Computed example of a mutant assay.
Amino acid sequence: MNEIIWPEGYLPGLTENFASNEVIVAGLSAEQIWPLLSQAHLWPTYYANSANVRFHRHEGPDLQEGVRFYFETFGFPVEAQCNECVAPTPTEPGRIAWHGWAGEGDTRLDVHHAWLIEDLPHGRVRILTQETQKGKPAEELARAKPNPMINGHQDWLDGLVKAARTIKR
Protein backbone atom coordinates (compact mmCIF):
# COMPACT_ATOMS: atom_id res chain seq x y z
CA MET A 1 0.00 0.00 0.00
CA ASN A 2 1.06 3.57 -0.64
CA GLU A 3 1.84 6.26 1.91
CA ILE A 4 1.52 10.01 2.37
CA ILE A 5 4.26 12.25 0.96
CA TRP A 6 5.34 14.71 3.69
CA PRO A 7 6.81 18.14 3.04
CA GLU A 8 9.87 19.20 5.02
CA GLY A 9 8.99 20.27 8.53
CA TYR A 10 5.78 18.22 8.75
CA LEU A 11 7.06 14.67 9.24
CA PRO A 12 4.86 12.80 11.77
CA GLY A 13 6.48 12.51 15.17
CA LEU A 14 8.43 15.73 14.68
CA THR A 15 5.44 18.07 15.05
CA GLU A 16 3.28 18.91 18.03
CA ASN A 17 0.34 16.76 16.90
CA PHE A 18 -0.37 13.95 14.44
CA ALA A 19 -3.63 12.24 13.54
CA SER A 20 -4.06 9.23 11.28
CA ASN A 21 -7.35 7.66 10.20
CA GLU A 22 -8.00 5.00 7.59
CA VAL A 23 -10.86 2.94 6.26
CA ILE A 24 -10.86 0.08 3.78
CA VAL A 25 -14.28 -0.70 2.35
CA ALA A 26 -15.66 -3.04 -0.29
CA GLY A 27 -17.99 -2.04 -3.07
CA LEU A 28 -16.55 1.42 -3.76
CA SER A 29 -13.70 2.65 -5.92
CA ALA A 30 -11.22 5.51 -5.76
CA GLU A 31 -12.99 6.98 -8.79
CA GLN A 32 -16.26 7.15 -6.80
CA ILE A 33 -14.61 8.72 -3.74
CA TRP A 34 -12.49 11.26 -5.62
CA PRO A 35 -15.15 13.86 -6.62
CA LEU A 36 -16.51 14.06 -3.08
CA LEU A 37 -13.05 14.87 -1.75
CA SER A 38 -11.60 16.92 -4.60
CA GLN A 39 -14.61 19.26 -4.70
CA ALA A 40 -14.19 21.08 -1.39
CA HIS A 41 -17.59 22.79 -1.62
CA LEU A 42 -19.14 19.32 -1.12
CA TRP A 43 -17.41 18.66 2.22
CA PRO A 44 -20.16 20.26 4.37
CA THR A 45 -22.78 18.01 2.71
CA TYR A 46 -21.32 14.92 4.36
CA TYR A 47 -18.99 16.25 7.07
CA ALA A 48 -20.68 18.42 9.71
CA ASN A 49 -17.34 19.77 11.01
CA SER A 50 -16.66 21.60 7.73
CA ALA A 51 -18.32 24.88 6.79
CA ASN A 52 -18.14 28.00 4.66
CA VAL A 53 -15.80 26.69 1.97
CA ARG A 54 -14.68 29.49 -0.34
CA PHE A 55 -12.07 29.72 -3.05
CA HIS A 56 -9.72 32.65 -3.59
CA ARG A 57 -9.64 33.45 -7.33
CA HIS A 58 -10.45 29.91 -8.47
CA GLU A 59 -13.38 28.87 -10.60
CA GLY A 60 -13.54 25.32 -9.20
CA PRO A 61 -15.16 23.03 -8.50
CA ASP A 62 -12.12 20.75 -8.16
CA LEU A 63 -9.12 21.54 -6.02
CA GLN A 64 -5.91 21.95 -7.97
CA GLU A 65 -2.31 22.31 -6.91
CA GLY A 66 -1.63 25.92 -5.91
CA VAL A 67 -5.29 26.84 -5.32
CA ARG A 68 -5.97 28.96 -2.22
CA PHE A 69 -9.18 28.37 -0.27
CA TYR A 70 -10.85 28.99 3.07
CA PHE A 71 -12.99 26.80 5.30
CA GLU A 72 -13.93 26.44 8.95
CA THR A 73 -13.28 23.32 11.00
CA PHE A 74 -12.71 22.42 14.67
CA GLY A 75 -13.62 26.02 15.54
CA PHE A 76 -10.74 27.38 13.45
CA PRO A 77 -11.09 29.67 10.43
CA VAL A 78 -8.57 28.02 8.11
CA GLU A 79 -6.78 29.58 5.18
CA ALA A 80 -5.35 26.83 3.01
CA GLN A 81 -3.38 26.17 -0.13
CA CYS A 82 -3.62 22.90 -2.03
CA ASN A 83 -0.08 21.59 -2.55
CA GLU A 84 -0.86 18.16 -3.99
CA CYS A 85 -3.77 17.11 -6.18
CA VAL A 86 -3.45 14.01 -8.32
CA ALA A 87 -6.57 12.12 -9.43
CA PRO A 88 -6.52 8.34 -9.00
CA THR A 89 -5.85 6.05 -11.95
CA PRO A 90 -6.27 2.29 -12.20
CA THR A 91 -2.61 1.89 -11.20
CA GLU A 92 -1.89 4.95 -9.00
CA PRO A 93 -3.59 6.33 -5.88
CA GLY A 94 -5.35 9.68 -5.76
CA ARG A 95 -3.61 12.25 -3.59
CA ILE A 96 -4.88 15.52 -2.14
CA ALA A 97 -3.00 17.62 0.42
CA TRP A 98 -3.08 21.16 1.68
CA HIS A 99 -1.20 23.42 4.02
CA GLY A 100 -3.64 25.15 6.33
CA TRP A 101 -3.09 27.92 8.85
CA ALA A 102 -5.03 29.95 11.38
CA GLY A 103 -4.21 32.52 14.04
CA GLU A 104 -1.08 34.53 14.78
CA GLY A 105 1.70 34.39 17.34
CA ASP A 106 0.90 31.99 20.19
CA THR A 107 -2.47 31.15 18.60
CA ARG A 108 -0.90 30.21 15.24
CA LEU A 109 -1.73 26.71 14.00
CA ASP A 110 -0.07 25.27 10.88
CA VAL A 111 -1.13 21.93 9.44
CA HIS A 112 -0.40 19.61 6.57
CA HIS A 113 -3.54 17.57 5.86
CA ALA A 114 -3.13 14.81 3.30
CA TRP A 115 -5.40 12.18 1.76
CA LEU A 116 -4.59 9.03 -0.18
CA ILE A 117 -7.30 7.12 -2.03
CA GLU A 118 -6.35 3.83 -3.65
CA ASP A 119 -8.09 0.85 -5.15
CA LEU A 120 -7.20 -2.51 -3.62
CA PRO A 121 -7.81 -6.05 -4.88
CA HIS A 122 -11.25 -7.64 -4.45
CA GLY A 123 -13.24 -4.46 -5.20
CA ARG A 124 -12.02 -2.52 -2.16
CA VAL A 125 -10.89 1.07 -1.69
CA ARG A 126 -8.52 2.40 0.93
CA ILE A 127 -8.98 5.96 2.17
CA LEU A 128 -6.18 7.27 4.36
CA THR A 129 -6.14 10.75 5.90
CA GLN A 130 -3.27 12.02 8.00
CA GLU A 131 -2.55 15.43 9.45
CA THR A 132 0.45 16.91 11.20
CA GLN A 133 0.10 20.12 13.17
CA LYS A 134 2.49 22.72 14.53
CA GLY A 135 1.96 25.43 17.16
CA LYS A 136 0.52 25.90 20.65
CA PRO A 137 -3.05 25.01 19.59
CA ALA A 138 -1.65 21.72 18.22
CA GLU A 139 -0.08 20.95 21.61
CA GLU A 140 -3.47 21.47 23.26
CA LEU A 141 -5.25 19.29 20.69
CA ALA A 142 -2.67 16.52 21.22
CA ARG A 143 -3.40 16.46 24.97
CA ALA A 144 -7.20 16.48 24.64
CA LYS A 145 -9.02 13.24 25.52
CA PRO A 146 -10.83 12.00 23.59
CA ASN A 147 -8.67 13.20 20.73
CA PRO A 148 -10.77 15.63 18.67
CA MET A 149 -8.64 15.22 15.55
CA ILE A 150 -8.92 11.43 15.48
CA ASN A 151 -12.66 11.56 16.16
CA GLY A 152 -13.30 14.41 13.73
CA HIS A 153 -11.36 12.82 10.90
CA GLN A 154 -13.14 9.50 11.51
CA ASP A 155 -16.45 11.36 11.12
CA TRP A 156 -15.11 12.79 7.83
CA LEU A 157 -14.16 9.31 6.57
CA ASP A 158 -17.48 7.79 7.64
CA GLY A 159 -19.43 10.62 5.99
CA LEU A 160 -17.37 10.33 2.82
CA VAL A 161 -18.05 6.59 2.52
CA LYS A 162 -21.76 7.05 3.29
CA ALA A 163 -22.08 9.82 0.68
CA ALA A 164 -20.32 7.71 -1.96
CA ARG A 165 -22.59 4.73 -1.23
CA THR A 166 -25.68 6.97 -1.47
CA ILE A 167 -24.59 8.34 -4.84
CA LYS A 168 -23.76 4.82 -6.08
CA ARG A 169 -27.34 3.68 -5.39
Rank of each mutant, 00 (worst) to 15 (best):
C85S: 14
D158F: 05
R54W: 10
E139G: 11
D119R: 02
D62G: 10
W6T: 11
W101V: 13
A138K: 02
N49I: 10
V25W: 14
L28H: 07
W101L: 11
I5T: 15
N21Y: 12
Y10L: 06
F55A: 12
Q81V: 13
P88I: 07
F55K: 12
P146C: 03
S29G: 01
L157N: 01
I24E: 14
L141S: 06
G66I: 07
G13I: 06
H153G: 04
Y10C: 03
M149R: 09
G123K: 01
T73G: 10
P93Q: 11
F74W: 07
H58C: 05
R124F: 00
S50D: 07
W43Y: 05
G105Q: 02
G123T: 01
A163L: 13
F55Y: 15
Q39T: 12
A87I: 05
D158G: 02
A138C: 00
I117R: 01
R68N: 10
A80T: 05
T132P: 05
Q39F: 08
T15H: 02
G66C: 10
M1W: 01
A19Y: 14
F69A: 05
E31Y: 00
W43D: 02
P7R: 13
V86Y: 07
S38L: 06
V23T: 12
E79L: 11
V78E: 06
M1S: 15
C85R: 07
I5W: 12
F76T: 13
W156E: 01
V78I: 15
K168G: 01
V161K: 12
P12C: 13
S29H: 01
G94F: 01
P90R: 02
T73E: 03
A97V: 05
A51W: 01
Y46Q: 06
N147Y: 00
E59M: 14
N52Q: 11
F69G: 02
W43F: 09
P7L: 14
T166L: 13
S29T: 04
A80N: 06
R169L: 12
E8S: 13
V125T: 04
